[in-house]
């Protein structure tokens, strides 16, 4: 492969790492810092991608037998013709709003109950969102999906070099989100989140409104995921319900956070890099390693393996006691005699 080809591949690779890094960060806010088990990242991913796509994509084309009715293309409206780039920013705000509202609804319903309820509810929401986009053709063209999603700042560079520009866009958004999350989790607010994750009862008895803090963290994480989904839509420029298969839209992200180190934002980004590297690297391997089904299997083993062998991930959280090891570090636990906590 010549240099330009390698470079192009690397740019594409790092765009994906950057986008997955955003999801991983969002999940870190929910799970890493607050201990909220979101099993339906795909739902927020899809909502983010579809929201921005619907707002910016050109109107349906009768010649293409497109079924959806709301063509979006707000940028094309004569009296609001401020260009696609303005609408891009605005649509990110809309994404945040939509994902925030959905996260609020799910959280309100389940965050007062034990953690598994949230996991089950998010799982269901992700599937419901997928089914809605699949069956309600009038919303977003059903299984044919939305294409011709415009590029942000597409006029600035030639289409051949656009990926370089988009990489910068992704990295800027990622950096902003990283700094914001970093700041937020190190604030007193973030300390409360970690206190809740460690011991909900203790946090409650020290007078914190645990439910409200969890709700806020869940919404923040959901918004970040939605933004990741929006960038994804503008990158691949084609989305359909198949895009949001739980494997690539939920499980891979979990593997990233667990591998990198939950509770550590640098870990979340490192995990995105490592796991996406493994994911896209294995396709060059010989024999069955390149089998997508093997990679599927591998993601599952990776999640279980990290929990079993190195619960903190590669980087782990920088703090006094590790959450998992702490419980038994003082003394070996008796075989079979460990009462429920």
């Amino acid at each position: 492969m010549e240099l330009a080809g390698v470079l192009n591949y690397l740019v594409g690779f790092f765009i994906m790492v950057g986008i997955y890094g955003i999801f991983s960060l969002g999940l870190n806010v929910q799970w890493g810092f607050t201990g909220l088990f979101n099993a339906g990242i795909a739902g927020f991913f899809a909502l983010g991608a579809y929201t921005t796509a619907l707002l910016t994509t050109p109107a349906p084309d009768a010649a293409q037998v497109e079924d959806f009715i709301f063509g979006g293309n707000l940028a094309g409206l004569p009296y609001l013709d401020w260009g696609i780039d303005f609408w891009f920013i605005l649509s990110l705000a809309a994404v945040a709003l939509v994902c925030g509202i959905v996260a609020y609804a799910v959280g309100r319903l389940t965050l007062r109950l034990s953690g598994d309820y949230l996991a089950i509810a998010t799982l269901g929401i992700a599937e419901a969102v997928r089914l809605m986009f699949l069956n309600e053709k009038w919303i977003a063209n059903g299984s044919k999906g939305l294409y011709r999603i415009p590029e942000f700042l597409g006029d600035l560079v030639s289409p051949a070099n656009y990926d370089y520009l988009f990489l910068v866009v992704v990295l800027v958004v990622l950096a902003l989100l990283y700094l914001a999350v970093q700041r937020v989790v190190n604030s007193p607010w973030g300390r409360v989140l970690r206190a809740i994750r460690e011991d909900e009862v203790a946090a409650q008895s020290s007078g914190k409104d645990v439910y409200s803090f969890k709700l806020q963290a869940f919404i923040l994480g959901g918004i970040i995921m939605g933004i990741g989904g929006a960038l994804y839509a503008h990158h691949v420029r084609f989305i359909s319900p198949i895009t949001f298969d739980p494997l690539l839209a939920t499980f891979v992200i979990w593997a990233m956070l667990m591998v990198g180190g939950s509770g550590n934002n640098r870990g979340a980004l490192l995990g995105a890099f490592v796991v996406w590297g493994i994911w896209s690297g294995t396709q060059f391997l010989p024999w069955f390693f390149a089998d997508p089904n093997f990679r599927f299997f591998m993601i599952g083993v990776l999640i279980v393996g990290v929990i079993l062998i190195r619960p903190g991930g590669i980087l782990g959280e920088t703090r006094r006691v590790s959450r998992v090891v702490g419980a038994s570090s003082h003394t070996p636990v008796k075989e079979g005699g460990n009462p429920k906590e």
Binding site: G35, F37, A39, S114, G115, D116, A119, F251, W254, G300, V301, L302, I303, V304, I307, L308, P311, V324, V325, A327, S328, V333, E335, G336, N338, E341
Partner: peptide, 16 residues
Amino acid sequence: DRGVSDLFMSMSSMGV
């Protein structure tokens, strides 16, 4: 045996 929280068990079952 390590005494992890129930949620970690659910999470590993998702990996499984």
